[in-house]
Design a protein around this nucleic acid. Structure first.
Lengths: 343, 343
DNA sequence: CGCGTTTACGTCGTTCGTAACGATA
DNA sequence: TATCGTTACGAACGACGTAAACGCG
C-alpha cells in the first residue's frame, strides 16, 4: 500500500468515479491511475468499486470503508506537511476562508487588513457564498475557515467557535415617519410598513418571521436580497423599511438613511468561525482567529485546538461574554476593540 | 512522503532511537533506514531528532508531533489491511490476547476451546502477565485484546467492556477448623488465621486489605503469590487460609480442599475485556468477545464498536446485568452459560 | 465511432543491499 | 576498538508516459 495509491483512490472518488478525470486532476497519466487502483485492489484482495463493463459503476461496501480510512490518512499527511511548514516558514502559506456577504463586506475588511499587515506572505482566499455554498466548500475540504451566522446543522463536520453577537437595525430614509418617531419602534410599528430584508435561506431569517408571528403579526416583506447593500439601495428608493444586521450600517449611510437599533425586537444572532476538527492549525491561522474574535483568550484558543466535539467548545464560551457588534456608531479599529475586550 | 518513511520513523522511535536496531527489526539494511529518515527530514524541512554527533539524541518538539500523526496513519493503514482481510479471508488471521493468570488458567480455556473450534485457522497468541505487563503490551500495540480485573487507570488507551463479576472463595484443607464451621465465616474469623492470597499488584487486592481495615482488623498475610495454583499448594501445606477468585476453584480440589463462598466479605470484582478504540475489529474478534462475554447482545457489541470514549461504554452496561462467575459448583460449558444468559 | 479503461513496453527515477568510510566514547 | 551512522555504488524494482488494443454505448 502506498500513499500515492490512496491519493489516487480518493481522486477517483472525488471525480465521480471517472479515472480519466482523476488523472487530469492529478496531473498524471490515466493508465498510471488505473494501474495503481488495480494494484491496490489486488494487494487488499477486494474490489473497491463495482464495474459496469470497464467503467466504474459504484463503490462497494468494503470500498467505502477503505475510502473513509484513506481520508483520515491523507488528512494526517496534510497535517504533517502543514505543521512542518509551520516550523520552517512560519510566515508563509495559504488561508482560505468561506463566508457570507455581511461578514465579507462589513466585518472582515478590518480583520484582513490587520492580518495582511502581519502576514504579508500568506496568500488569502476569500470565498463568498450562501450558507449552503459555504457548506459545500467545507465538504470539499477547500477551505480553512468558515464564518457564518446560525445554520449550525449545515456544519456538523466543523467545530464552531462563537465569535460575536449582533442585533438588527432598521434602516429608513431620513424623511421617513419611523425616523421621526420619538420612541423605539415596536414590531407593531414595523408591521405597518412594507419590509426589505435578507432572503430566507439566510441564517437568522426565519427567526425574524417568527418574531412577528409571536405577536400575531404578519410582516409585509416586499423584497428580499442576499446582501445589505442591495437592501439599502431599495430602502433609498423608498421601496420599504430595511431590516439588516447591525454591522451593515455604514457611517456614510447617515447622509440619507436613518438607522434605528432593533435590539429586543428580534432574537440576537451569533456569528461563529468554524474549522475542521482534525486539521492542524498553523500559527497564522490561530492569529487570524485572534484577530477575528479578540475576546477569546489564548487559553481558550489552546483548548479549542484540542476539542474533540462541539460540546467541548460550547462549554468554553458563555454567550454572555461574547462581544456585541454594532455598525457605524461604535466603529472602532481592531486594536481598540481588543483593548475594550481585554479590559 | 511515503508510508515506508513513516514506518521507519516509528521503528526508530520504538527502538530507542537506534537506527541499527530499527533496521534489524524491519528486516532491512541500516543505511536504507538512515537514508529514508534523512529524506523525510529533508522533505519536511525540519529536524525530527536532535543529534549527538552522528547518533540520535532525542526527539524534537516538531518530531513528536510528526510521530504522533504518523502513528495515526499507520494505525489506519493497519485498519485498511485488517478490514480487507476480513472481507477476503474471514476465517484467517491472528488474535493476540494479554491477560492475567486467573483468566488464562481458569476462565479462558473454555472460551478458547470453543473459539478454536469455530476458527481453526486463526492463530492465537495468549500472553500472560501482571496488569503492568499487560499495559506495556497494550502500549506497544502488540495485542488485540486485554483481559483483566480492576486497574482501569493503567488502561486509559483502551475501551473496557465489563464482562463478568466475581466474588472470592476461602480455601482451607478439609480438616481445617473453618471447614467445620456451621455458619459462614466472617472477617473476624478469617483474621484469626494466617492468610495466603494474591500479591498486591493484583487489581482487587488492595480492596481486600481495605475490607479488613474497615472492621478494624489487620489480616495476617503470610504468603502472597501471583496465581491461585501456588496459593493452593501452600494452603495444602497448611501454611494458611487461602483467599482466591471464585473461578479458581477446581472440582478436583474437593478431594483435599474445602471452598467456602466469601461473597459479602469483600467487594465484588469486575473483569473486563479491553481493546484499542481506533483499531478495526475483525469478525472473529467480535465472535471472541461474544464467547467471552455471552451476555452482551449483538446490539450492544455493535454500539461498542462505535464508542468514542469509555463513558459511551459505561452507559451501555449496567453492572447488575453482568453475570456472576463461580468455580466448580456452577461449572457449565459455554453453550449452557449462553442459554442461561439469553433466557 | 467516441469515450473510457486496460494492456504493452521503453525510460527513468528510487530503493535496496554490500562495502567502505567517519565519528564518537 | 567497538558501536553507530553516513556515503558510495551497482543491481533490481517500480512508476510513469506513450502508443495501441479493447468494450461499451
Amino acid at each position: 500500500m502506498k500513499l500515492q495509491q490512496l491519493k489516487y483512490l480518493l481522486a477517483i472518488v472525488d471525480n465521480g468515479l471517472n479515472i480519466t478525470a482523476a488523472a487530469d486532476r492529478l496531473y498524471t497519466s490515466q493508465p498510471g491511475v488505473s494501474k495503481q487502483l488495480k494494484l491496490l485492489e489486488e494487494e487488499l484482495g477486494l474490489q473497491l468499486f463495482t464495474r459496469k463493463g470497464k467503467s466504474l459503476g459504484g463503490i462497494t461496501a468494503a470500498g467505502q470503508q477503505v475510502i473513509d480510512r484513506a481520508r483520515v490518512i491523507m488528512q494526517e499527511v496534510e497535517n504533517i506537511r502543514s505543521l512542518a511548514s509551520d516550523y520552517y516558514h512560519e510566515e508563509e502559506g495559504t488561508l482560505s476562508i468561506a463566508t457570507t456577504h455581511t461578514q465579507a463586506r462589513y466585518v472582515l475588511p478590518d480583520v484582513i487588513r490587520e492580518f495582511r499587515k502581519r502576514y504579508p506572505r500568506v496568500s488569502l482566499n476569500l470565498h463568498q457564498g450562501t450558507s449552503e455554498q459555504i457548506a459545500d466548500m467545507v465538504a470539499a475540504n477547500e477551505i480553512d475557515f468558515a464564518i457564518a451566522t446560525g445554520s449550525h446543522d449545515l456544519f456538523a463536520d466543523l467545530l464552531l467557535v462563537p465569535s460575536y453577537r449582533w442585533d438588527r437595525k432598521i434602516l429608513v430614509p431620513n424623511e421617513h415617519n419611523l425616523a421621526r418617531l420619538d420612541r423605539k419602534p415596536t414590531l407593531h410599528d414595523l408591521a405597518k410598513f412594507p419590509l426589505v430584508t435578507y432572503v430566507f435561506s439566510f441564517g437568522g431569517q426565519s427567526s425574524l418571521k417568527k418574531a412577528f408571528a409571536n405577536k400575531g403579526l404578519e410582516p409585509d416583506v416586499v423584497f428580499t436580497a442576499r446582501d445589505a447593500d442591495v437592501i439599502k439601495t431599495y430602502v433609498r428608493m423608498g421601496l420599504g423599511v430595511g431590516i439588516v444586521a447591525s454591522m451593515a450600517e455604514d457611517c456614510d449611510d447617515k447622509k440619507d438613511l436613518t438607522a434605528i437599533e432593533a435590539d429586543g425586537l428580534f432574537p440576537r444572532s451569533t456569528t461563529w468561525i468554524g474549522f475542521r476538527k482534525d486539521a492542524v492549525m498553523r500559527r497564522y491561522m490561530l492569529d487570524f482567529v485572534q484577530l477575528f474574535a479578540p475576546h477569546i483568550t489564548s487559553d481558550q484558543l489552546e483548548q479549542t485546538r484540542h476539542a474533540r466535539s462541539q460540546d467541548d467548545i460550547d462549554g468554553l464560551f458563555a454567550s454572555a461574554d461574547l462581544p456585541l457588534r454594532g455598525g457605524c456608531s461604535e466603529d472602532m479599529p481592531i486594536a481598540a476593540a481588543r483593548k475594550v475586550v481585554g479590559a
